[in-house]
Design a protein around this nucleic acid. Structure first.
Lengths: 231, 231
DNA sequence: AAATTGCAAGAGCACTGCTCTCGCTGTGGA
DNA sequence: TCCACAGCGAGAGCAGTGCTCTTGCAATTT
């Protein structure tokens, strides 16, 4: 009974994983626009209508792939961060940023899936928001655990109240230990990293940047200075 | 003869503009994925095959729209910059950045067209690269004409040689008057602005930012400080 | 006035996402 | 142990897509 039930359910899981695997392969080959359910089914020796037992719609399959991509990226970054001594904020920052870029350049089409143009009538379910926060949480932890108490940075200018435009409760959960007046710089650094990768992967740097890898390291370094993560 | 010839050619131009107009409308309504040549033709009271006299392929139509979008954005920013006194670098910077965001939020689908996921087998013709540089040139001019001679910024750290990874010749054309050791910060500011808009329009700020307009102003301000544009 | 060229129409091909109906088969309850 | 049921794959079919090719008309060029 339970084993029998499980075997059926397990078969279902296996099929779903197989479908996603083929879909990922096709996306890697021909980008997301070239992903067709019929081709997935052909590749699996199935008839197209059979796929609809597992994913009611193409968008549903894409949503599953998006979730996986977020989690895959998140896991990669978490691992890279974990390899560095906790106290070495700068080392953790550099390792994490490099892990993000490494994942993005290795999986450009999946990067496009999650950070590119949203799919048309698509509204991100809360699940994806959580998964998306995973990588942000790593960066947040690094900043929060940095021993640098946010020393007054140069001439003390009156900081505008960030609670006017930021969701401070949500941000406090993502980067505990970071002072609210540092939220803006943190978000800017996060934006800079992904803006860089988007520009690199989507071709906006053509004609201006000839070695994105080297530049990225310098950018990460500048951001570390701005975030006072450098020893 | 010449008038007759011109009338024919003019009619052709008119038709092309009409097609692009309808296409733009459809994109605004249903995003780029929802743009179909057949629907454009239907909207124009034509049969679908007739459109192929003007655009050999769907991608060709998209390319034309991309070019128009770049130029439209470029023109908007140039105008905003032109309204501010030349010597007021900070004012020009703020006005230009706001013009970029204004255009982007008013034309989100066209923004996605040019800064979102590239269309599949598509390689940007040099034309689009030039058009894309138009807005970068405005920002470059502001920095180049700023009276601030790049004063040594705090503790003089040895700058890495940016010519290792940047196309310095190309950059010199875009931002004449800017010292090469400032290229990195300039590119980072450019990346930050468009990274911000991409995150805002593509929904990455959901749950963390509640008023992107206010935040943008603070970001632009921070960038101005980093670029030493503030008086 | 004749020849050429530009154009819209229409049929048609290969493809897509998606629906529905039909049998087969393994599963869980009686 | 048997039986009803649910899950599944197959197949046909609908409406839509980008794109091609041929045909005939009309405007332009010579």
């Amino acid at each position: 009974m339970s084993t029998a039930t499980n075997s059926r359910a397990r078969a279902r899981e296996t099929h779903i994983e197989a479908i996603k695997g083929v879909a990922r392969k096709l996306i890697a080959e021909k980008s997301v626009a070239g992903l067709s359910l019929r081709e997935v089914s052909r590749e699996m020796g199935l008839v197209s209508s059979a796929l609809y037992r597992y994913f009611a719609t193409r968008d549903e399959l894409l949503t599953a792939l998006i979730l996986d991509a977020y989690n895959d990226l998140g896991r990669s970054v978490e691992r890279a961060d974990a390899k560095v001594a906790r106290a070495d904020a700068y080392g953790r920052w550099k390792a994490s940023a490099r892990a993000i870029r490494r994942w993005a350049t290795k999986n450009p089409h999946e990067y496009a899936l999650i950070y590119g143009t949203p799919i048309p009538g698509y509204v991100a379910p809360t699940e994806t928001i959580d998964a998306a926060a995973r990588v942000a949480r790593v960066l947040g932890a690094i900043m929060g655990e940095s021993r640098q108490t946010s020393a007054p940075s140069g001439p003390r200018r009156k900081k505008s109240d960030v609670s006017r435009y930021l969701e401070v409760e949500g941000l406090a959960a993502i980067m505990p230990g970071v002072a609210p007046e540092d939220y803006l710089k943190a978000l800017m650094a996060w934006t800079e990293i992904f803006g860089f990768l988007t520009f690199e992967l989507f071709g906006q740097y053509v004609g201006t940047v000839k070695n994105a890898s080297l530049m990225f390291d310098d950018v990460v370094n500048e951001l570390a200075i701005s975030l006072k993560l450098k020893p």
